[in-house]
Simulated assay, not measured.
Amino acid sequence: MRKIHVIGIGAGDPEQLTLQAVRALRGTDVFFLLDKGEVKNDLTQLRRDILDAHLPEGSYRLVEARDPDRDRKAGGASYSPAVEDWRSARAGIYERLITDELGEDGTGAFLVWGDPSLYDSTLGILEEVLARGAVEFAYDVVPGISSVSALVARHRTGLNRVARPVQITTGRRLAEGFPDGVDDVVVMLDAHQAFRQYADQDIDIYWGAYIGTSDEILASGPIGEAGPRIERLRAEARERKGWIMDTYLLRRHPGEA
């Protein structure tokens, strides 16, 4: 039977792969990669750099396919259906890649940024491919160092405080309000810098973009002070590269509500 590795490759630093991930890389016949277009060529090259760092030169086979476009303007009630449509389109591509490019007893792999369990669609898409019944395969999951772990390591802080919870959410959710009962909140997928609405509160921000790569940018401090600088850094970086991947931790001081 065909076998698929879903390998968490961390936030971009080839040295942050686990030994389990490297072993999975070395046991793979073909790597599948979705090309996100010319603007995000850096993401493709980073994957190649990771493979080159851990595999003999020219020893691996890489098969690329064009990533389907997603309606990123969809909001409100139309957001979830738009995401589901995009995932189904991806499932069709995965199905074709596995069927056409992988032998019946071969091993393929998808290289997933960060950790496959955290705000990534690969596992759900593979389950959809299996449910369609056109191709059979077994798959396993290799955990990776997420951008969340890498962020707090670079800022030399922890995710939570003693006996207190931490919540991971999205910019879309943060814009609806600071989570109840939580003082430490990690925010991902925030295209609109929702932290700005909390600039008048006693909250610190620990922010990072392109974490683990040569383009890494870090900033921290009270939102009221660090926020404008983060907005400027983010805008400059997005203009320079054409895309940005960032995340941040918000830490509310005792007494704020």
Rank of each mutant, 00 (worst) to 15 (best):
L233V: 07
F195Y: 15
G221K: 01
R196L: 13
L218I: 11
A74S: 15
A11R: 08
G144I: 06
M1F: 07
A134I: 00
N41T: 13
G171N: 08
H253F: 13
H155R: 10
A138M: 01
A235I: 04
T157S: 07
T28P: 06
M1I: 14
T122Q: 05
T247R: 00
R2H: 12
K36E: 08
I211M: 10
D35T: 00
Q167C: 08
D204L: 13
A89G: 13
G58D: 13
A65F: 05
T247M: 14
G106R: 02
A226W: 10
R47S: 12
I168H: 03
F32T: 07
R154Q: 15
I205K: 01
A150M: 14
T44N: 12
L126C: 07
Y198V: 10
L51K: 10
T170S: 15
R251K: 12
E216R: 07
G8C: 05
G108V: 04
G37F: 03
F32H: 09
T213Y: 10
R238G: 12
V187T: 12
E57Y: 01
R172E: 09
D42P: 01
A235G: 11
T99C: 06
A82Q: 00
L17R: 05
A109V: 01
Q201I: 03
N160D: 15
G177S: 03
D215Q: 14
V166T: 14
V166D: 03
R240K: 15
T247E: 11
Y60E: 07
D105S: 14
R2E: 09
A194W: 01
L130T: 06
V39T: 14
G221W: 10
